[in-house]
Amino acid sequence: MTTTDPAVSVRGVGRRLGGVQALQDVSFDLPAGAVCGLLGRNGAGKTTLMAVVAGHDRPDAGEVAVHGERPFENPAAAGLVSMVRDDQRYPDDFHLAHLLRVGPLFHAGWDAQLAEEVVDVFRIPAKPQLRKLSRGQSSAVGILVGLASRAPVTVLDEPTLGLDAPSRQAFADLLVRDLAARPRTVLVATHLADELEGLLDRVLVLDGGRLVRDAALEDLQGSASVVLGPVEAVERATADVGVLASRRVGGFLERVVEEPGGSARAAEDPALQVRRAGLQELVAALGAGPGPAATPRPDRLTEVSR
């Protein structure tokens, strides 16, 4: 393995769960040290993809490698990935103290001092069973394992779900500080794309089990604009550009258009407002698909940049 080898390599992965195609022909590479956001709507396939990367599940098709090792049922890969699910199950009568005792058994890099700090920062209670913690407290436990394990690939499943604003800030602080001290690859699934945007340097967007965007954050940030104004004016200005989503409210129409070029004509019209689409808006647009008044370009909607 060389330093240029990806930390995570996913090639043509498919996974069918029951009657649903949860993942379909998903391919991407994560370079070592990347902090990658995994975005998409509920049911987009985020948790399934993370489970496949972590070796909790195996794909029906395609191949996954973590630092060159197949993650499913491979002892050599067991300590390479750390992933606590947002609905993680714990044994009966299993408390925080038990988790702090067993964590170091599975990860050579486990940092007990950092684990104790996470407990303090998020005020994770010691007395209740882990299975009975609140939503935010459960998220904090996931953060604890994810950070303290110091696994080469850390998978965080909705780490800020249920956390209050100070705790979300604390999570960002801890993650940035710890990654500076111990660089490693992080794959983080979240619905709060805008909040975590400052932490990410890559973004994967899933929709309906397909990877619809794989891009560096800076490339994605300028890739779409929002055009807002009277219906006719917006339709005229965006008639022949790639429209990701449309929303009509009364006599007004809002369209998320692809850049470059999508907002060029609209910018010249004083009746229209044009602004850069935020990450959250872009993800929602990719997940929502074009509206009824849009001019869809399916080939671009499903395009994956590599």
Binding site: P104, G109, R150, V176, A180, D194, E195, G198
Partner: peptide, 18 residues
């Protein structure tokens, strides 16, 4: 919605216990 950005500059930690 405001982005959550680190409120303190990164600082080095001591070596992880291994």
């Amino acid at each position: 919605m405001s982005a959550v950005l680190p409120s303190s500059s990164p600082r080095a930690l001591g070596p992880a216990r291994r």
